[in-house]
Amino acid sequence: MSELFKDLSQAIYDGDAEKAVELAKSGIDAGVKPNELIDNGGVDGLERLGTAFNEMEAFLPELMLGGEAMKAMLDYLMPFMAKDDSSSAGTIVVGTAQGDLHDIGLNLVATQLAVAGFKVVNLGTDITVKEYIAEAKKNDADIIGISSLMTSSAYYQEELLKRMIQEGIRDNYKVVVGGGPITPQWTKDIGADGYARTAVQAVDLCKRVMTEDLSEALIIE
């Protein structure tokens, strides 16, 4: 079985979505539990990619392709996970606020969250408040993540929360914020559930807002 995990890890590392799904299928056929395939194969591959990224052996395209391969494998495994009584870490819709076209930080966060087992719906850049809410409803999300590299776009973080209160859906979703000019104070002022400074910290943030009973905004910096 360790050979299967090794091959699966390599398929994720190589960003080969087709092979990752094929190997996951053979694992399921052989009776391996989905969460074992994810933890010992997929997550291992992405963790190796993360190390390679930090050591200048892999770069953003490889990281993104690895994330895509992981997503394809998770999509395949999802129906079996229900039978196995396992569940993903949660569903998050992420994007940058209206007017903000910067995608690299967003893509890093989306990839890190996928690595950690979240189902990530990456909406991309320049997303309106209406689109965030519509996509959160459509995907039955647990968390909405909204980032901005500029304060003039960050205002839409506050608008999103206001709109959710107006529509009576504020308690349906956790809202986490991030981006260069975003501060802990801003996070608290607008009533968001949490803030993280880096992509890696965003994973810890999302895990904790999903599981902890927080009385105030969770700040990780």
């Binding site: 007017g99 205002y155 839409y156």
Partner: peptide
């Protein structure tokens, strides 16, 4: 990012 103290929402 404000105009006369009012937030200058991007793309608006």
């Amino acid at each position: 990012d404000t105009v006369f103290g009012i937030p200058a929402f991007a793309d608006s």
